[in-house]
Nucleic acid binder design. Structure first.
Lengths: 365, 365
DNA sequence: ATGAGTCCTGAATCAGAAG
DNA sequence: CCTTCTGATTCAGGACTCA
């Protein structure tokens, strides 16, 4: 037994990118040898026609061959196979992270459970700057979902509670993470200046995952390595990585990227967090929350009146619109701060609606 | 056909709470009769003895080595059965919302897809005041997941885009909703002062769902009615509801609650609508009515010119056709909204032709 | 240098009526 | 069922230009 684990460790191709199909490659690695798997598999988007922005520019969609699957059945078979291969190489106390969108994440989550993984959290990556919904036909798809699961219910998984709490300004880290998408200098470009990979993940996301659920010196394996964000962050944080990627172009970009990465010194690991701006509170939320009732009248200091509608707009005489628009129209002013302009009545008192906004903000912390 | 739909409508037990198992009850309702299903099914996979098979037999506690698989199997059977029953009673253009946590939502989402529902969005309810993780062993579980799906890929589902945008102060609504959990006076208590239901959902959540994805007068069915949040909000918003609940204690609380609910006044229920919903005005009508003269020149923002012809088409250089076709051709764009693209001149001013359309529409009332 | 203004882009299951 | 045609629709942030 001792011999086995020792030789296994020696055989592990650490800090390298392996060329090949991830299922075959994982099946060729020694079992129970990896501490964490991070997997960003194809999402199986099933896009139909082209999509244009209102300015007529075309959206550069993910239409790569590797995201095409003939059916749910084919996708499920693929998912079952790579998850089983990942589970075999995980140490008994190992864990896995997967990321996906509504196209594939439900199928992945169900299969994780079927195989005996134990879900610890589902985590929502709330994008601060998502692509809008250009046709106005659905909600802006502003998040992706990660699932964090241990290899089994009995696993003593790693969780650096205090580190994540510190990262969150001393407050316990929640299951929703607000992080920007990968743009700017961090976004890798090819020789033409186009994005090197259609779905490069931000390092901030991997930072939180690796810092929170592995210890320095442990091994993180990414079966869909792409441009190597997992490897880059693992290296910075003093973890070993194994990348598997079958597209030569991605491997090449990742190799160059990794060569430039420097491990942080310990002091640098203390992350500075930016001050948060005061959260925007839409007026509609006062209506949804029942603080104001649709049909209720608001009054201005000089006695103008308007009625609240169910969608958070106001209506007064022939004017309708937001609290700001209606206020401005009634005062024939170019603009108006509806929050201080409008008041509601409670028990004979006239109270500015801004009080209600402050109440919501205080709840948000 | 006419007879059928008329009698179906008559048979629907509107604005009532039906006692019984939701699968049986739904199977007893006429098919294609409901506009929206909102479902908050049991989350618990570990079967504390209150889960039933599709045939309504009670599930025995599982005590063997197959526990986990058997539990998922039974939960999946249950999910498959109630989703199929819900799908049968949905109108062809109907839609469904389900809510769950990581314990069950992946299995529900996969089954939705398997049955042919078409996922439109997954929505994250981000709780502003979640229960902390007391042991510090995981991330604070601070959200739940909703899935919004149409009955089929082809369904013309209802989405009140402008209303939700208004609710969010003019910015399109995203897939992550920050709302507080149900507490305070909204949280229903039993005669002992204990909470009447363990998982009562906030009305704000249902407000957004029902306002955004149904129209006034439509029918919303909730197969796991509980204390009746769905019914209460549907009533406020002028929608009809059907509730199904097999626990007498919940039905009793819900009945009392619903009796107190008042519908919002009609004017408050009129929400912002998109231009799409307004009557179509052919460009030729502006010519017929003499608002524009044949031979008159129109100009684009960037100085392109086209001449109005008597039949309501335009001609520019070698291009002729509708206002949209000529605009698209001159801009080499895949499409063009001629109403906002073309302008005419009056008294030295350049005015978009859309002004004239608005004039006609306002005459139409 | 700084700031205002412009342009570009991101895992997207993105139309519907009329003929 | 098909095809044709109208015409509605975007937020945040980084890069870049120009005064």
């Amino acid at each position: 037994m001792t011999k086995k684990s020792a030789s296994d460790a020696a055989e592990l191709p650490l800090n390298r990118i392996i060329d090949g199909d991830c299922i075959e490659v994982m099946n060729g690695l020694p079992e129970a040898s990896v501490d964490l798997v991070f997997a960003d598999p194809p999402y199986n988007l099933q896009l139909r026609g082209d999509l244009h922005r209102p300015d007529n520019s075309k959206v550069d969609a993910v239409d790569d061959h590797w995201d095409q699957f003939a059916s749910f059945k084919v996708y499920d078979d693929f998912t079952r196979a790579w998850l089983a291969a990942a589970r075999r190489i995980l140490k008994p106390n190992g864990a896995i992270w997967v990321i996906g969108s509504y196209h594939n994440v439900f199928r992945m989550g169900a299969e994780l459970q079927n195989q005996g993984f134990w879900i610890l959290n589902d985590v929502v990556w709330r994008k601060s700057n998502p692509m809008p919904n250009f046709r106005g036909k659905r909600l802006t798809n502003a998040h992706e979902t990660l699932i964090w699961a241990s290899r089994s219910e009995e696993a003593k998984y790693t969780f650096n509670y205090e580190a994540l709490k510190a990262l969150n300004e001393g407050i316990q880290m929640r299951s929703d993470w607000v992080l920007p998408i990968c743009t700017g200098h961090e976004r890798l470009k090819d020789e033409n200046g186009d994005k090197a990979h259609p779905t490069q993940k931000p390092e901030s996301l991997l930072h939180r995952v690796i810092l929170g659920t592995t210890n320095p010196g442990e091994v993180v394996l990414d079966p869909f390595f792409g441009t190597g964000t997992t490897g880059a962050v693992a290296k910075m944080l003093g973890r070993d990585f194994i990348g598997i990627e079958r597209e030569a172009a991605y491997r090449e970009v990742a190799e160059k990227r990794l060569a430039k990465v420097r491990k942080f010194d310990k002091e640098a690991l203390i992350v500075s967090t930016s001050k948060r701006a005061e959260p925007r509170v839409p007026f509609g939320q006062l209506v949804e929350r029942g603080m104001l009732r649709p049909g209720e009248m608001l009054v201005s200091p000089r006695g103008k009146r308007a009625k609240v509608r169910a969608d958070g707009t106001l209506i007064a005489d022939d004017v309708k619109g937001s609290i700001h628009q209606v206020g401005a129209a009634l005062e024939s002013a170019p603009s108006c701060n509806g929050w201080t302009y409008w008041h509601f009545k409670r028990e004979g008192k006239t109270i500015p609606i801004d009080i209600l906004r402050q109440q919501i903000r205080s709840e948000l912390g």
